[in-house]
Amino acid sequence: MASRKKTLLKVIILGDSSVGKTSLMNQYVNRKFTNQYKATIGADFLTKELTVDDRTVTMQIWDTAGQERFQSLGVAFYRGADCCVLVFDVTAPNTFKSLDSWRDEFLIQASPREPENFPFVLLGNKVDLEPRAISSKRAQQWCQSKNNIPYFETSAKEGLNVEQAFMAIAKNALAQQNSTVDLYNEFPDQIKLTNTQKPSGGSGCCQ
């Protein structure tokens, strides 16, 4: 298949408010953790160049708002995504429960051609904190039930596992991009505006 001239991977980070989406993105791209983050409104993105299997790719990471009602703006941001990263907070059970809804909503709004094969990666963030509410086993079970989503336990604060997780994200995104030329139904159900059939006079009801 023809490879694109410049490989751009678009990655979307989703998850409940305050699970650490912005922190993860900043830890990965800038290797920094600060307390200065503001609530993300709508979406922001950062880009990073990296090498995956001897290939230089640009990863565009989209960080989104965590409040549920912002899901309705998703369409504008999810378009053309190559991989979706779901994040929950291992100390907050509610954020784990919401994962299904984030995943489903993403698939509806982004409408990839093969939803069952679209790459997701799950990150259980804040492993530096106690007490833990969601065990590794429980998270892994969830991943298995969703067609074996890769799972990483991270700490954006300590920079733990962040690099590894994003490398896996990049690989999955790249594999997905290579496996399908056209990931999205860019032109679903074409409607032809020019009438190729000549109207057969007299048969229409309005005449």
């Binding site: 503001k38 409104i41 709508g42 703006l73 504008a76 941001f77």
Partner: peptide, 17 residues
């Protein structure tokens, strides 16, 4: 470039930040 990508905060919070 869709306008929502750069102008959301202009409209949403009247240019704060």
């Amino acid at each position: 470039l869709d306008a929502i990508l750069y102008s959301l905060k202009w409209f949403f919070v009247c240019f704060i930040e």
